[in-house]
Each structure stands twice: as structure tokens, then as C-alpha cells.
Write a protein that binds this DNA or RNA. Structure first.
Length: 273
DNA sequence: ACAGGATCCTGGGGGC
DNA sequence: TGCCCCCAGGATCCTG
């Protein structure tokens, strides 16, 4: 579920409540996440202190001191929050980490269990793993990289934006929203995109994501930030989930088609290039 | 290289 | 009210 803006929101929230805290205890559910929990990780986590929290694509990286890296992916329905120990656990809670203030805990809840929480000795152990190579962050895309990456593939724009190797962090919502903002047909091929239009797409992606982060991401059903607050960007969607509703630009109905295996929302009238 | 499908899961909504 | 089918923000594996 969560894409870059939602993961960034969680990371920013957790920085406030988690950095500097020592982990004092861990409880896990018996039901496995995408990666099964290893009991070997527990002694690696307990007693260590959270030094920094970072985001890479849709991955949450929690750096530990003196060593260690705790990597969490929210999958489709993951919720990572710091809550009071007094708050009763909802269903589908799969991981709880006690904090050294004796009051709060870090809680991971995930209805569909597509997410993961894995300990690694260091960052190379994570990046060298079966995780496919992540592309650049959307805010770090250079015009040249983006132009050449597009020119090298005959895949359609929608499929390219969803590919984490091309750009890290964009998912179905923000792919559709970015293509509308750039007024580009999601079916267009990367190698057919003229440089001016490639540049339009590059800046549209950054602008859409920046605006979504400012709104604390989008909550369709399950997403909450690290403090439990919902996002607000769903109120600004131009095409995603608006099938049949009037385009905010031209008034004609938004359409939905299947592309790269995903629902793709667009305005055939406005996205004509 | 790439498209398409299936898989891992649960829950919600629509149709009947 | 219930049942069945389809759908969902992701990553990954497999086939053709």
C-alpha cells in the first residue's frame, strides 16, 4: 500500500519518537511475514540504541548503535507506529519492540502480511541480498539519467515508473498521478519519449511526490503515519480512483485500463502525448 | 528483455 | 442476511 510519500511520513514521525531510544525487549506473533522472523535476531536488537532512521525507496532503514540495521517494508497494509504501552493491541500486530523509557513501544501491524521486518549486520548485507537493485531516489534523478534510462527501453511508461530499478519509491497511485501531471499517455513507450517530454515527466514525479509528502501521504484504507495519523493526499488525487468522474482539467470522464498488470487511471483527452 | 500471470494474505464491497 | 467473486497502495518468481 504505502508508496514513497507514505513511507517518508512514517520515517519522519519515527525520527521524533524513536531516535536515541534503546530497545529493551521484543515480542513477535506466530504468523510469518513475507520474511519469517528469526529468533537469532532478538539478541542483536535488544540492548541496542536507535541512531538514525532513513528511507530508501519504500524501505525503512533503522540504524542501530553500536552496530546493526533493522529494515522494514510495509508491503500493502503495514503500519509502523510508536504507541503507549497502555494502548491495547489491535489484531494483526506481528511485532512489538519495548523502548527504554518504559512507556512506549514500537508496534508493527500488517493485515495482509506482505511486509517484512529483518535484521542485518550492516547495510551491504541488506543491499547485497535478493533485493533487486534499487534505482535512484525520485528527487535525485538527473535529466541525463532519466532521459537515457527511458531511451533504453521499449516498455510502456506506466511499467517503467512501477519498476523499482528505474526509479525507487513510485507505486501505482503516484505513477498515475505523475503521468497525468505530465500529460503523458501511460501506454507510451520509453524509447519514443522526446527529451522535452521526458523532462516534463521527471519534474512532474518530483512535484507530485513533494506535494504528497506535504499532505502526509494518502490514506485509502489502512495507511497511518508513525504517530497514527492518517494522510490527506487522497483528497487531491487527479486520476487515481476517480474512474468515471470528471477530469479536473477538461471535465471529461476519467478512464481506467489494465496496464503492466495494474489498474491505470487516466484522462485520454488530457494525456495525449 | 519483457509481458503476463500467479503467488503470498486479509478484508471490503458489489451482485445475486 | 449470506454467499461468492473480484478487487486492493508491493515484491518476486515463473512461463512464454
Amino acid at each position: 500500500m504505502p508508496e514513497l510519500p507514505e513511507v517518508e511520513t512514517v520515517v519522519r514521525d519515527l525520527r521524533l519518537s524513536l531516535v536515541g531510544r534503546r530497545l529493551t525487549g521484543i515480542r513477535t506473533s506466530s504468523r510469518p511475514l513475507r520474511v519469517k522472523w528469526s529468533p537469532d535476531w532478538e539478541p542483536c536488537l535488544v540492548g541496542r540504541q536507535v541512531s538514525t532512521i532513513r528511507r530508501r525507496g519504500k524501505w525503512i532503514l533503522i540504524d542501530l548503535a553500536p552496530t546493526g540495521l533493522f529494515v522494514i517494508h510495509l508491503g500493502m497494509t503495514g503500519q509502523l507506529t510508536v504507541v503507549s504501552r497502555a494502548k491495547p493491541a489491535e489484531n494483526h500486530v506481528h511485532l512489538e519492540v519495548d523502548l527504554d523509557d518504559g512507556v512506549d513501544l514500537l508496534r508493527y501491524r500488517d493485515i495482509r502480511r506482505f511486509g517484512s521486518a529483518v535484521y542485518y549486520a550492516d547495510e551491504s548485507a541488506w543491499s547485497d541480498g535478493r533485493v533487486e537493485d534499487l534505482g535512484p531516489e525520485p528527487f535525485d534523478l538527473t535529466p541525463r539519467y532519466f532521459r537515457e534510462m527511458l531511451a533504453a527501453t521499449s516498455r510502456c511508461l506506466k511499467a517503467i515508473l512501477l519498476d523499482q530499478r528505474a526509479v525507487a519509491g513510485v507505486g501505482n497511485i503516484y505513477a498515475d498521478e505523475s503521468l497525468f501531471a505530465a500529460r503523458l499517455d501511460p501506454r507510451g513507450r520509453g524509447c519514443d519519449l522526446k527529451p522535452r517530454r521526458a523532462e516534463r515527466l521527471r519534474t512532474a514525479i518530483a512535484a507530485v511526490l513533494k506535494r504528497a509528502i506535504e499532505s502526509r501521504g494518502a490514506t485509502i484504507k489502512d495507511f497511518v503515519g508513525g504517530s497514527g495519523l492518517k494522510g490527506g493526499y487522497q483528497n487531491e488525487f487527479t486520476v487515481y480512483g476517480r474512474t468515471g468522474q470528471p477530469c479536473r482539467s477538461c471535465g471529461r470522464p476519467i478512464e481506467c485500463m489494465r496496464l503492466a498488470g495494474r489498474s491505470t487511471h487516466w484522462c485520454p483527452n488530457c494525456q495525449d502525448e
